[in-house]
Design a protein around this nucleic acid. Structure first.
Lengths: 208, 208
DNA sequence: TCAAAAATTAAACAGTTGTTTAATTTAAAC
DNA sequence: GTTTAAATTAAACAACTGTTTAATTTTTGA
């Protein structure tokens, strides 16, 4: 799982990311990629071995530094609820500016084989969950967070809310009058992020 | 947007649903469908016109009665929070027992063309949102629900949480030790549904 | 400068794709 | 029973699929 790609490989990876995100893995042909990246179709096999391995490389290329960012956050000196808010902001920001790859991850890694990449991806998710657990258990010890919470289900709420919003992009663009890409992005950065923070905070603190 | 399909068409639709859900629209060939449905490959074009129109027919076939169920719920005599809980249960139950089509909807209707079906789907979502608004505004008038809530973002939280959980099925099966399909379904019906209800309730009621 | 390695190319490979055709079988109508 | 319509079939269509090959160009290292 190394990620030292050369310039040419990176050029191909970024074109592939764009196309996979837009048309899906099966919906994108090597000829599509080659044309857009202005390379010969044989270069994909030459550099990555196969279309499947190209996808694996793309996952590695895009996800290999998320863990570090989370670790840094964990060590900041903040109240638990502030850490949660920052974690949500980090997630949304990061995913929103890497929409392509995260859409691909969720589209291509559900019921398919893709053994190796799936393994890597699973490790990444486990690490993320561990970070979240650390923060929440700290808040529970301090008596701030309630204790009848299923922690592994928090991530689905955070990420799921974002993804569902984003996967229905055109629907919400119409509904909320987000006419430009900038307005849409701004809505995510402010309103949507705030909604998720508000939701998770209420869930963690509210006593029924 | 009629949905009177004959037996043969329904047979094809259900096979297509199964395969589309499993391998995606682009990942499924008409020959796959024909083989599994034990029909000649020309029959798809004969009955539906094209592969694209087959997908449209499938959407119509599977979504045309959701609206009725929601309308019935709206007219029940229940407290707002109870209605929300029932709405969540209805959503999760329905989607969970029609996983195929909903997975397809979310996989195939994001950035692609598919003009007509997208229009139909958009109308369905608008109707659903209207129902949710009715319930929440009622709760707000009665002073039970807080008023600084962005209602259109509630659906992403409800459905997104479910989808994110389900799209990471194998990950959560391992993490939560859900070894059989029955255990997995049971977890959704009880714990996941409760988590979503708890989350939305906290969001609607918690005063910061 | 020149040989070895790396990069790039066009062409071909064998399969698969969605769709159409024209012929044949089955069912319905009278 | 005969005619008309509907259903089903195998075959062919041209276009596209991922991958490999062998030849050629470019870059590298001494």
């Amino acid at each position: 799982m190394k990620n030292n790609f050369n310039d040419k490989q990176i050029q191909i990876l970024e074109v592939a990311e764009c196309l996979f995100a837009e048309k899906g893995f099966d919906g994108t042909s090597i000829r599509n990629i080659a044309k857009m990246a202005k390379i010969n179709i044989a270069m994909v096999s030459y550099y990555f071995g196969s279309k499947e391995r190209l996808l694996e490389s793309l996952i590695i290329y895009r996800t290999s530094d998320l863990k570090n960012q989370l670790d840094n956050l964990l060590q900041e000196d903040l109240e638990p609820i502030e850490k949660i808010n920052k974690l949500i902001e980090l997630y949304i920001n990061r995913i929103n500016s890497n929409r392509g790859i995260y859409r691909i991850l969720h589209f291509e890694f559900t019921s398919k084989k893709r053994e190796q990449s799936l393994q890597d991806f699973s490790e990444l998710k486990k690490g993320n969950l561990k970070s979240l657990e650390t923060i929440i258990e700290d808040g529970q010890r301090k008596g701030i967070f309630r204790k009848d919470i299923i922690i592994p289900l928090i991530t689905p709420t955070i990420l799921g809310t974002f993804f569902h919003f984003h996967m229905n992009k055109t629907f919400f663009e119409n509904l909320l009058n987000l006419k430009t890409e900038e307005l849409y992005n701004n809505y995510i950065k402010t309103n949507l992020t705030k909604h998720i923070q508000q939701t998770i905070k209420a869930l963690l603190i509210y006593e029924s």
